[in-house]
Write a protein that binds this DNA or RNA. Structure first.
Lengths: 238, 238
DNA sequence: GTGTGATTCAAACGCATGTTTAAATCAAAT
DNA sequence: ATTTGATTTAAACATGCGTTTGAATCACAC
């Protein structure tokens, strides 16, 4: 085995670090083996030599990111629930939501949330062997625990409603995170009023939005089902 | 010019129809020229002959879908606002949201919403010349009009907040639509409790969720900023 | 029928990308 | 110095894709 104790880091480590950085910046599909190797100062073949292929590298990177976020969120939930039990109270809805959002939107570590968004969006747009594996094996646990916590914090909602709203919540968070950068649609349409890059404000806005969304009291208005008409009037036979 | 009045439709039309169908089913990146041509009973070269390339075909299909939905939504908004003015009242928040959701989630035409979701998600995951053009030229108008209508219907929110929440709303709708099919994460995690394929229920759930999300009354809880700690204990110094 | 322009077709092209190969290089052990 | 096994390298390979080509075919006008 090579024991290079010189200044330069091991090639494998450099590739791993550059990969995470590039996946966050350019998205998963936007990173080629060649560009990645070049930026890491390594040969193209080194990626396959050390990781056994691009997919394995991506799996490793995203499994790690997902795992870190999962551990942190489960710990947060544990703390919140323990604290609530100590007070003989239900966990506070806003607190639960805040802790969830915090894992994605955070001034200190904007990359983790962005990477998670990239992962899940890629899994949605074109699912994969490895995206499937990472999502199931790393993210499912968090979802289940949070659904339970939300059900506990919002006891007026029945179980199905909690599931629906949890997924709506994830959707709004992920789509907003993927709207980062100077090309941001939100920033453009708001005429610069909203800056998604400011994670502090983004987080506050998300928490306000989502807390309201989980509160009950949305009795159907008088004219529900007011939009049955459809463009072109297609029939319902497909 | 060829004037084929026989039973079989023109090749161009067949390609166009099959393209829309396949884009909805497999996503934009999941459709190859070859597969498309085969399913349309045409030669691979026919796609380029009739449309001048895959991108042009996609542009045409999605511009059309986006345009139809835009026209319909603007008409709906007009009607709502006219009706409100006639009653000397603000437009009803729930009604506005309902009309927005309706364009994406509808029992009669599930494909339009799915296609719109595919378009915007593709634009997010890897933006393009043509996705950019279609989004800007067909969807921006709707966004602006709806932001205005929502601001009118929820006067307690200041303009920036309305923009934020509009984009959160779009996010939850699109992510949910892209979670269709038997592989649905929502369906799996809810143990079959939620069926995204049932557009009727999906729409009702979305409207409930979003109406709550646009209501004010989310004063920050007692322990706001309760999650400054970050994995590794980073500080909040930016 | 013949000519004409539009359309269809099988085949090939060009390109980008992930991967493999086989030789060269390196660091450490002997 | 030699050997050894790990690593690095340039180059080639394999594949999937959108696209182009040039000949064949078709519907129609004359």
């Amino acid at each position: 085995m090579r024991l290079n104790h010189t200044i330069e880091k091991e090639t494998k480590s450099r590739i791993r670090i550059v990969a995470e950085e590039m996946f966050a910046t350019h998205g998963i599909g936007g990173v080629t083996t060649r560009a990645l190797a070049e930026k890491a100062g390594a040969n193209t073949a080194a990626v396959n030599y050390h990781f056994g292929g691009k997919d394995n590298l991506a799996t490793e990177v995203f499994r790690d990111v997902a795992h870190r976020s999962t551990v942190r969120r489960l710990a947060n939930l544990d703390r919140i629930e323990t604290e609530a039990r100590a007070n003989n109270a239900r966990p506070d809805l806003r607190t639960v939501i805040e802790s969830f959002v915090d894992a994605y939107v955070n001034e200190d570590d904007p990359r983790t949330g962005l990477l998670l968004a990239r992962l899940v969006l890629k899994h949605r747009v074109d699912p994969n062997e490895w995206t499937h594996a990472v999502v199931r094996e790393e993210l499912d646990r968090v979802a289940e625990r949070y659904v339970a916590a939300l059900a506990d914090a919002a006891p007026e909602l029945d179980p199905a409603e909690v599931h629906w709203r949890y997924h709506f919540m994830v959707g709004s968070i992920l789509m907003t995170l993927s709207d980062d950068g100077p090309e941001s649609r939100l920033q453009r349409l708001s005429g610069g009023l909203c800056k998604p890059a400011d994670k502090r404000i983004l987080r506050a806005q998300l928490v306000d939005f989502l807390t309201g969304a989980f509160l009950i009291g949305n009795q159907a208005g008088p004219d529900n089902d007011a939009y049955p008409e459809q463009a072109g009037g297609r029939s319902v036979d497909d």
